[in-house]
Design a protein around this nucleic acid. Structure first.
Lengths: 325, 325
DNA sequence: CTGTTAGCGCATTCAG
DNA sequence: CTGAATGCGCTAACAG
């Protein structure tokens, strides 16, 4: 593997001239440019980007922390991030951490070590207090509502979305309302629980702890819903399910358990995944790929401007009424 | 940001001693090690990995080329890759290329530029002739059957899997068999088409060009199936659908079009995605996450051993009989 | 066990 | 427009 020096020699110029043509500087005579290009071609020269990264102090790479890719939520988020990164010719480091705290910290260390220019945290197990100090080394953006920190954020309002869904259910006549949490994100979970109780109280109803289900993420998790429903003295008539996959599972298995949707049990999902459209599931569209795209766009801007000002963006969601409520 | 030199000065040692403790070398006196560690802590030192990459010539990073993450097929492949990479403390560069030829070549250039140590190509639009020369710069692995090249591969036998599925359908009494292709991979598509005709002929039946459907990838693509079916003079009684999402879509929309599964139309899917289990779709389990894990394991070994010997691995698939045939 | 030294490959002043 | 010289931050002989 030849280096810039050998190219310089082969082309009969200095290394700086080679560097100039490599970086498309103006002020290089046509003759020398040609000579350099010819030498590069002939010797099969390839620039060693590690040297460039070292000297420039940036790597054109952003890391994305996510617990697991194998979930539609993160997948769509990631897709939005990737599409936007592509536009700016940036690379993405995919860090599947499985909510492992040490793995998350390792990624933050990579930022400190200048291996990456910024970090997008889609979900986390580390605390904000642990994360924040790393913002000294580069922009960090979380996909959740973060305020008063040197951290950026792109999110939708979990509280408001829950409120919207519950109010919708209430207006459709439901008084007994249950919901599932996926534990995808603890901070969002807490907000949702609060929204659940607040909203029902505001409407003159009541939330119940036994109508709250935790740990529902996948389609197959839905299998536990009906046994649980059967075990209840008083049942909810409507379920707010944070994830269309789970909602689809519930809808599809309902007949086996003798339930009709929405007659016996109404369902509202989250995310507006393709499956909810196909099955006609009423859902809250949180536009994940837009969240992802905005996340990257913001962090990219911060990298480019060397800004330390954190930015925050609250994205809109919308309720899509279909046939399960 | 302090560098190794300043740490050396602060600790009253030489840079090489600092480097030694950084790299956990033996032969460093306990006293100096402590002094260095103290200085590192006190000055908040962080190693610049770009310098390390430059000098060592490796980056502990592998790139994965995929057309789009937002598809269960690639997502599960990616998950297997990521899980294995985590074990070996390697980073993953996610390159969503959208089948854009230039983007694929850019990733290969990154290999040449020493930004990454190896490349996993899950699907491609570039030709093998274009890809192969880059193997001079680091191991390249494709998730398809590649032979007689300086490229590694992990795959399952598309031909055999199609043959298995068609034979199964045949044995269940089906004589008119159609199939969909997703175009996820042209080379696999060709093999499948060949398997389709060969197998039916071998069994004493006949394949028909008008029973072949191209471009079916997503759940919502399935919407076109029934109109197409209605347009046919003679219809297939069974459909081999390369992708459980599409199969699920077909299954779920069948009633609207007055079709019963499997009575009016039998369905066999591919991939054994969670949805096929939930819906009871007969499918071919190709164990995507294992393919991914093996892919990374092989390329990791090649990087570590600095082997240039390409490796090839043919993984097993299995037919899972459920209720749609 | 430790320090000195010579690069890794490149970009970038600063003089011409 | 061009080249010489300097250094990015670190590792690894090499000599003690």
């Amino acid at each position: 593997m030849p280096n810039i020096k050998q190219i310089a020699k082969a082309a009969g110029v200095s290394v700086s001239t080679v560097s100039r043509v490599l970086n498309k500087h103006p002020y290089v005579s046509e003759a020398k440019r040609k000579a350099v290009e010819e030498a590069i071609e002939r010797l099969q020269y390839a620039r060693n980007m590690n040297a460039v990264h070292l000297i420039k102090g940036i790597t054109q790479t952003v890391a994305v922390i996510l617990p697991h890719i194998n979930h539609p939520y993160f997948m769509r988020l990631m897709e939005g991030i990737a599409s936007e990164a592509l536009k700016h010719n940036y690379q993405l480091m995919l860090c599947q951490t499985g909510y492992n705290h040490d793995e998350e910290m390792k990624v933050l260390e990579m930022l400190k070590n200048k291996q990456i220019d910024g970090v997008i945290i889609t979900s986390r197990s580390a605390s904000l207090d642990q994360i924040e100090p790393y913002s000294a080394y580069g922009p960090i953006l979380l996909c959740e509502d973060v305020k008063d920190r040197r951290l950026s954020s792109v999110y939708y309002d979990h509280y408001l979305s829950f409120q919207t869904a519950i109010t919708f259910l209430w207006e459709k006549g439901h008084r007994n309302i249950g919901f599932t949490l996926n534990r995808l994100n603890n901070s969002s979970g807490r907000k949702r629980i609060r929204a659940y109780y607040d909203t029902l109280q505001m409407l003159g109803g009541n939330g119940r702890a036994e109508w709250m289900l935790d740990g529902y993420r996948d389609m197959k998790d839905s299998a536990a819903i009906f046994p649980w429903l059967h075990s209840l003295d008083e049942r909810p008539t409507a379920l707010l399910i944070t994830g269309d996959e789970v909602a689809a599972g519930v809808l599809l298995t309902a007949p086996q358990y003798g339930f009709q949707v929405p007659e016996d049990i109404a369902i509202i999902g989250f995310d507006n995944q393709p499956i909810s459209e196909l099955l006609g599931i009423t859902t809250i569209d949180i536009q994940l790929s837009i969240i992802g795209a905005r996340a990257f766009a913001i962090i990219y801007k911060q990298i480019t401007n060397r800004t330390v000002e954190p930015a925050s963006e609250n994205l809109q969601f919308k309720l899509i009424e279909r046939k399960t409520v």
